[in-house]
Amino acid sequence: MNHEVKRELVTEMHQVILHPPQGNIIGIDSVVFNLPVHYQILPVKDIHNPTFVFRDTLLFDNIMGRYQPYRMLSYETNLDGKPVRISISKSLLMSDELIEYVAFVILLLSLILLLFIIAFNNYFFSRIWGKFFKTIDVIKDYNISDKKEITFPESEITEFNLLNQVFEQMHERIKQDYQNLKEFIENISHEIQNPLAIIKSRVDLLLQDEDLNKSQTDLIQSIQNSTIRLSNLNRSLILLSKIDNNQFPDKEEVSIVENINYHLDNFEDIIQSKNITLHKDYNNQITILADSNLISIMLLNLLKNSIYHNVPSGNIEIITEVNKLIIRNSGKELDINKEDLFKRFTKSSNKPESLGLGLAIVKKICDYYHCNIQYFCQDNFHTITIIFN
């Protein structure tokens, strides 16, 4: 913009030199651009600088009533045989206003272009990618245990239709593999439990033989204990596998408090034999939507854990709050890392006969129903908290 002002001043200077105005100080309109320009022609003794000299200055504007910035061009030459200095000043305000106007127009056009790009992009996205995101939603909502067929939306784009075909084929393979795995688990459960039941019944018959000596009785009793342990291990692993394979789709309203009371009644003799003080503080009747068998197994393992790992004349506290269950029991100091407490086959050295799967099953059921389980120990009091969602 400064270059443009200089060019206009030079043009005006040539006009003044060719057609000099009358008088020493003259203010007229620009010949070339019809812009306000101030002229000044003053006599000098000698011509010292016969070149164009530019500088910025302030001149008083009578219309605005204040000083305004100007760009001034001075040139010394002879007019009518007399040395004079011709000074032409052009206001810079017009240039600044023009810059602001151009900037505003550019900004406005940029904003319009940006809005157009956003609108076009949204249209393009909804038009081209809409069916793709519908396919993604179908995949997100997919549940392998759900028996209803899944359908993918048809698209005008060949690549998306090809992707849908791949997903449909993958779905069929996953469904078939899931069915095969489900049948395998059911078969293995049946095939293992039957021999175990036969072994257990035969051992029971042997124990009834009165001719057995103590050594034989102890040996047979050991076989019976191992058989029971193996049967429990088989059931626990099958349960974990079924949870992993999402084989508990049925849901109903399950009362946490009712299940706790039911299991406590079954443990009443053991609680009394260990002289455990039981304190129940039911501040809230928690009800969740879940498989009743899974919730019963979860609470059974928690209560069993708090009883069998307790100390003689110990304490158990059961507290229910809004969507929260707290089970606190006295016991020996934990001799395993609490980070490993909910892992499979993690058991205390004080209970070598334990399978080490009880809390792993509890954790798996909590994860299955998106519940948060926490463990905390202080002053030999072990606290497990479950937050139901």
Results as ranks from 00 to 15, higher is better:
V138C: 05
S201N: 14
D96P: 06
S236W: 05
F376I: 09
L59F: 11
R344I: 10
R328D: 07
N213R: 03
L289W: 04
S313M: 11
H3W: 07
Y308C: 02
I128L: 10
I260N: 02
S215Q: 15
K343S: 12
F345Y: 15
H279P: 05
L357H: 01
L111C: 04
I228M: 08
V31M: 13
N293Q: 13
E172G: 06
L92I: 07
F381H: 09
M64N: 10
V16K: 00
I295E: 08
S110N: 09
L163S: 04
S145P: 00
Q193D: 13
H14F: 14
I185C: 06
M170R: 08
F104Q: 13
I112H: 02
C366Y: 01
D177K: 10
L108Y: 12
K347H: 10
N246A: 02
T277D: 08
L212P: 05
I157Q: 08
E252M: 14
Y75M: 03
R7Q: 15
Y282S: 00
D244Q: 14
I88K: 07
L334V: 11
F381P: 06
I307V: 15
N329W: 02
M64R: 15
L42E: 13
V53G: 05
F184K: 14
E353M: 05
H370G: 01
L341V: 03
Q193R: 11
G65E: 07
S201C: 04
K242H: 03
F132P: 03
I361T: 11
I192P: 00
L233S: 08
K242Q: 15
F60E: 03
V84M: 06
V84I: 08
G65N: 09
Y178N: 14
Q169P: 03
L233Q: 12
Y369A: 02
I260K: 00
E149P: 04
K280C: 08
F152Y: 14
G331R: 06
L233M: 13
K214Q: 15
L303A: 07
L58V: 09
S91G: 01
I118R: 07
H14T: 11
D281H: 08
V105Y: 01
I106Y: 08
K90V: 00
N283S: 10
T57H: 09
D141E: 14
N225H: 14
I365L: 11
F381K: 12
F267C: 03
